[in-house]
């Protein structure tokens, strides 16, 4: 653990959780092992908590976490005090195409961070690099660092499966499994070995996803029989059932009608009370409505400006961002 101290941040409110499983846990393939792993993580986190507190006292409490290079800093305030996720010089390539270019930004704990920008600007790629979904694409290659609670998730000892159990995801197109509503929500609990009190957890998740009233009597029916908006809320219920720390949402309302969209937006704001939500959207009004912080990506995979949402929409530093926000291009 000690060699990680340089990579560890200061101003964390929460304990440092290391995602790194031990050598033997690296090839975790069944839920029982996963259970042990989770317990281990908390134990390790408990110990390092002390170290973190000490560091906080000695260093100035306002200091951020991982050093941010000055050269490629975007405009605005890319550094926050309570960062959960810190990207440092992050590049992503698909084959020979560079999709993300030297991204440096922090994502604060709780609240909603919106990633906006025109198509092909790399905002979804950035989102997918947070829970290493890009690993599933053969040609994708990641360079640079991305810290989750001070641990670089692209270190060799990080198991993406363990990482994804802490960072949940909701996709652009509602993608419920061809299983019952109940089994959809229970799926994550089962693969993560959190299957004690499944019924209660499923119920709670559906309740928090504001879906329970509509499906209470049809939990045994297929998730595919629901409407698009309901399916997406089912997917959100499925993602929060396992209680991850961070929820990534990739244009979760883009395939929905306005009524369903507003329900999803309410839900996102609700979830942000407790979770760190990172949402990609192409809809600027949506970003303005629901997010606390906004990152603007522009063509070529560059992060141009990152700041409080109000600041971005009312008084952006960059002219290009202003042009984009006001609809002059993009």
């Amino acid at each position: 653990m000690s060699d990680e101290t340089t990579g560890r941040l200061g101003g964390l409110k929460r304990t440092v959780a290391t995602i790194a499983p031990g050598e033997s846990r690296f090839e975790t393939s069944n839920t029982r092992d996963a259970n042990v792993e989770t317990t281990d993580m908390t134990a390790e986190a408990g110990q390092s908590d002390v170290a973190t507190t000490e560091r906080n006292e000695t260093e100035s409490s306002s200091s951020g976490g991982v050093e941010m290079p000055t050269s490629d800093r975007p405009l605005g305030t890319p550094r926050v005090d309570d960062a959960v996720i810190e990207a440092r010089d992050l590049d992503v390539f698909y084959g020979d195409t560079q999709a993300l270019n030297e991204i440096n930004m922090d994502i604060p704990e709780q609240g909603v961070t919106a990633l906006i920008g025109p198509s092909g600007c790399g905002k979804s790629t950035f989102l997918r690099s947070i829970n290493r979904m890009n690993d599933l694409i053969d040609v994708a290659r990641v360079e640079g660092e991305l810290y989750f609670h001070g641990k670089n998730i692209y270190d060799d000892d990080v198991d993406p499966v363990a990482l994804r159990r802490k960072i949940g995801m909701v996709f652009q197109k509602p993608n419920p499994f061809p299983k019952s509503i109940f089994d959809n929500v229970a799926y994550g609990l089962r693969v993560q070995g959190k299957d004690d009190d499944v019924e209660e957890k499923v119920h709670t998740a559906l309740e928090r996803a504001a879906l329970i009233d509509e499906v209470e009597d049809q939990l045994d029916e297929s998730g595919l029989d629901l409407s698009g908006g309901q399916q997406q809320r089912l997917c959100i219920a499925r993602a929060i059932a396992t209680d991850p720390e961070v929820i990534l949402m990739d244009e979760p309302a883009s395939a929905l009608d306005p009524v369903a969209t507003s329900k999803i937006e309410d839900l996102v704001e609700e979830l942000a009370q407790e979770y760190t939500v990172v949402i990609v959207t192409h809809n600027m009004q949506q970003a303005a409505r629901i997010s606390d912080k906004t990152a603007v990506f522009l063509t070529g995979g560059h992060l141009v400006e990152f700041d409080d949402t109000n600041k971005i929409f009312e008084n952006p530093e960059s002219d290009r961002v202003e042009d984009y926000i006001t609809g002059k291009f993009g």
Partner: peptide
């Protein structure tokens, strides 16, 4: 999309294949 949903929930490749 279905595979991604399962991977996103922290399923292993074996679990994605079989379940």
């Amino acid at each position: 999309e279905l595979r991604n949903a399962a991977y996103g929930l922290g399923a292993t490749k074996f679990e994605v294949s079989t379940s």
